[in-house]
């Protein structure tokens, strides 16, 4: 399916903005998680600027689509997407991870508007997203539930308990996205604790799998989300091949930039993403 070229250009523009904000926030805080924030920029942008049925003026709207950032350390990416969508003023970003600010280091649903679930301890978000999807069914609502998982995160056992449950409940209103950037905190996923064959695993658990060869390509993501929404009687997972630290040359693919390994290089990172 081809998409409106104007939409694609607009989403690319938003993604660029989100990417800049991620680096800005982390530079202002002097700490945070650039790698996993940057790998999810396009996914979050497409979600917030196209896929999700939400209303920033009414963050508590009961019929809104839900989103869970299960890899809660990607908070900067989520906050930036929420900000560009109009949930809160840009000034808030400058107080990320700081005392008195509303943008807590890992998402806090009681502090920031638009945050549907608190997270930070990995492996728990898929279960919460299942709960949201089930609630929609019990309440006869047609909102959908989305959840973003890290590829290191799916080493947690709870993920597979949830992976077993969602197809059993036939949750076709649930879409998971796997941020397959190949890197976790201590190193490469393939070296620390391999997850392959990852697509086969989700299929074996009963999920409809959609591979997205380039999780930074807006059009590919749009196509993947369309496909996910069309699936009936079972949940779908978009397996998005991404680059950890995408957009900052010295951060790309580097486990050392999961967190901020050298605050002195953050200005250079900011310059790079501004030039993009």
């Amino acid at each position: 399916m081809s998409h409106d070229p104007d939409l694609i250009v607009e989403l690319q523009r938003q993604a660029k903005q989100v990417r800049q904000m991620v680096v800005e926030m982390i530079a202002a805080a002097g700490s945070g998680h650039p790698g996993g924030g940057l790998s999810a920029v396009e996914i979050l942008t497409v979600l917030y600027h196209h896929v999700l049925q939400v209303d920033p003026a009414r963050p508590d709207w009961p019929d809104r689509d839900r989103f869970v950032l299960s890899k809660g350390h990607g908070a900067a990416g989520w906050y930036a997407a929420l900000c560009t969508r109009g949930y809160f003023p840009r000034e808030w970003l400058g107080r990320f991870r700081q005392i008195g600010g509303k943008l807590v280091g890992h998402p806090d649903m009681r502090k920031a508007p638009g945050v549907d679930m608190s997270s930070g301890s990995l492996g728990q978000g898929l279960s919460a997203a299942i709960g949201m999807a089930l609630a929609a069914r019990y309440h006869a609502k047609d909102y959908r539930s989305y959840v973003l998982l890290g590829d290191g995160e799916i080493q947690e056992g709870q993920i597979w308990e949830a992976a077993m449950a969602a197809p059993h409940f036939q949750l076709d209103n649930l879409t998971a996205i796997l941020d397959l950037n190949g890197v976790q905190l201590d190193g490469n996923v393939a070296d620390i604790m391999p997850i392959d064959p990852v697509v086969d695993k989700w299929q074996a658990f009963g999920w409809h799998t959609i591979e997205c060869a380039d999780g930074h390509d807006i059009e590919q993501l749009l196509t993947a989300f369309d496909a996910a929404q069309a699936v009936k009687s079972r949940p779908a997972i978009i397996i998005a091949h991404t680059v950890k630290g995408k957009g900052v040359s010295f951060m790309e693919h580097q486990a050392t930039w999961h967190g901020v390994s050298d605050p002195d290089r953050l200005p250079a990172a900011l310059e790079e993403v501004t030039r993009l």
Partner: peptide
Amino acid sequence: AGYSAGPEGPSH
């Protein structure tokens, strides 16, 4: 432990 994870927030 305690608050020593600082800016990571209450989850940590």
